[in-house]
Amino acid sequence: MTDAATRVARIREALAQAFAPEALEIKDDSHRHAGHAGAKDGRGHFKVRIVSAHFEGMSALQKHRAVYAALGDLMETDIHALQIDAKAPDHA
C-alpha cells in the first residue's frame, strides 16, 4: 500500500469506527498542493464526505469538531488540510 493509500485507509478506519457511516468518501488531494508551504512537512490534503446518524441535530461546527476528534493524532501526523462534508442521513 502506498503512503497515500495508507493515509486514506487510516482515515477511513478512524471515521468508520467513530461514526458507523452510511456513506464515506475520502479523496486525497495532496497532489494538487505539491510545493505548497503548508504541505512541506509531508502531511496531506484530503476531502471527506460522510453520512452518519451520529450527526443528527448537530451544527456544522459540532460535526467538524466530532470529525477532528475522531481523527485524533492523524490531524497532527498525516493531515495538513481537511475539507469536510458531514451530514445526517435525512440531510444527505
Rank of each mutant, 00 (worst) to 15 (best):
M1V: 11
D3W: 09
A4Q: 08
A5D: 14
R7A: 10
R7Y: 09
R7S: 13
V8S: 05
A9D: 05
I11L: 14
I11P: 06
R12Q: 13
E13A: 15
E13L: 12
A14D: 11
A14W: 07
A14E: 10
L15A: 02
L15V: 01
A16T: 15
Q17G: 14
Q17F: 09
Q17T: 15
A18Q: 02
A18K: 10
A18I: 01
F19R: 01
F19Y: 00
A20D: 15
P21C: 03
P21F: 02
E22S: 14
E22P: 01
A23L: 11
I26R: 04
I26S: 01
K27L: 15
D28L: 02
D29V: 10
S30K: 03
S30V: 04
H33S: 04
A34D: 12
A34C: 12
A34Y: 05
A34L: 14
G35N: 12
G35R: 10
H36E: 09
A37T: 08
A37S: 11
A37D: 12
G38T: 05
A39T: 11
A39K: 06
A39I: 12
K40A: 15
K40S: 04
D41N: 03
D41F: 10
G42T: 02
R43L: 09
G44K: 09
G44L: 09
F46A: 04
F46H: 00
F46R: 05
K47A: 04
K47V: 08
V48R: 04
R49K: 14
R49Y: 12
I50T: 03
I50E: 05
S52M: 02
A53V: 11
H54L: 07
H54E: 08
F55C: 01
G57D: 07
G57M: 09
M58T: 01
M58W: 03
S59I: 06
S59M: 07
S59F: 08
S59T: 15
A60M: 13
A60K: 11
L61H: 08
Q62S: 04
K63C: 13
K63S: 13
R65I: 04
R65L: 07
A66E: 11
A66F: 00
V67F: 05
Y68P: 06
Y68Q: 01
Y68S: 12
A69K: 08
A70N: 05
L71S: 03
L71T: 08
L71D: 08
G72Y: 06
G72V: 00
G72I: 00
G72T: 01
D73W: 07
L74F: 03
M75V: 11
T77G: 12
T77L: 12
D78Q: 14
I79T: 13
H80F: 08
H80R: 13
A81N: 00
A81H: 07
A81W: 07
A81E: 02
L82I: 14
Q83T: 15
Q83W: 07
I84D: 12
D85V: 13
K87W: 04
A88P: 08
D90S: 14
D90H: 14
D90E: 15
H91S: 13
H91D: 15
A92N: 10
